[in-house]
């Protein structure tokens, strides 16, 4: 019965700001000692993550002529939702849908919506968790009324605090590499590099 759990997760997220302070579940400090020492990410565990944060454009690498260039993008906002399924102890696979938007130098707008498959590793020292991950997929890139679909590779790590048996909170930092290849106009081939830093809430299904 995954659907009711999912709905519950959405509802919990909608009330996250108050819910975090109104938990009826025991806080991490009250959990049994065994929960602190064992890695709880065993096969079959599932998580939903919700994140919101700041998106930093770093640079564009010219894949045709070499060199880098200013992105002409301002610091923007990023958000996302991801699902993970633990397939082996301390290792999960899943999917992620995200969005990132920035203003531009000429006061236009730019956004990306990546859809990625994600692999994560869990290193736990309760109540803290370090979760490095890599993702790959396709990003919808929209600018000046034009849309491109571009490959995206991401890598980074989340640093989480296990607040309860159901929730973890923390910071997730990911480096995005978005690849633009054009066979007919190779001089426009670029690699976009971005840094995405977000506050993350993880719900343990």
């Amino acid at each position: 019965m995954r659907t009711p759990r999912f709905i519950l997760a959405v509802l919990l997220t909608a009330t996250l700001t108050t819910g975090a302070f109104a938990q009826t579940e025991p806080p991490a400090s009250d959990l049994p000692a065994a929960d602190f020492n064992a890695n709880p990410y065993v096969r079959g565990e599932q998580t939903l993550s919700f994140s919101l944060g700041t998106f930093f454009p770093i640079t564009f690498v010219n894949l045709y002529a070499g060199g880098t260039a200013d992105t002409n993008l301002k610091i923007g906002a990023g958000f996302g939702i991801s699902y993970s399924y633990v397939v082996a102890p301390g290792f999960s696979v899943g999917g992620e849908i995200e969005g990132a938007t920035c203003g531009t130098t000429a006061e236009s707008s730019f956004f990306m919506v990546p859809f990625t498959a994600k692999a994560s590793w869990y290193f736990v020292k309760m109540p803290f968790e370090i979760v490095p991950s890599v993702s790959a997929g396709l990003a919808i890139v929209r600018y000046e009324g034009y849309t491109n679909f571009n490959p995206i590779l991401k890598g980074g790590a989340a640093f989480l605090w296990r607040q309860s048996s159901s929730w973890s909170f923390g910071l997730d930092a990911q480096a995005w590499t978005v690849w633009q290849f054009y066979g007919d106009i190779p001089q426009d081939n670029r690699l976009g590099i971005f840094l995405d830093t977000r506050l993350t809430a993880v719900y343990h299904l």
Binding site: F60, T71, N72, T104, F110, V141, N148, V178, Y182, D188
Partner: peptide, 8 residues
């Protein structure tokens, strides 16, 4: 054209 190239 390439969107990142346009942005530049």
């Amino acid at each position: 054209a390439g969107l990142f190239a346009l942005l530049e």
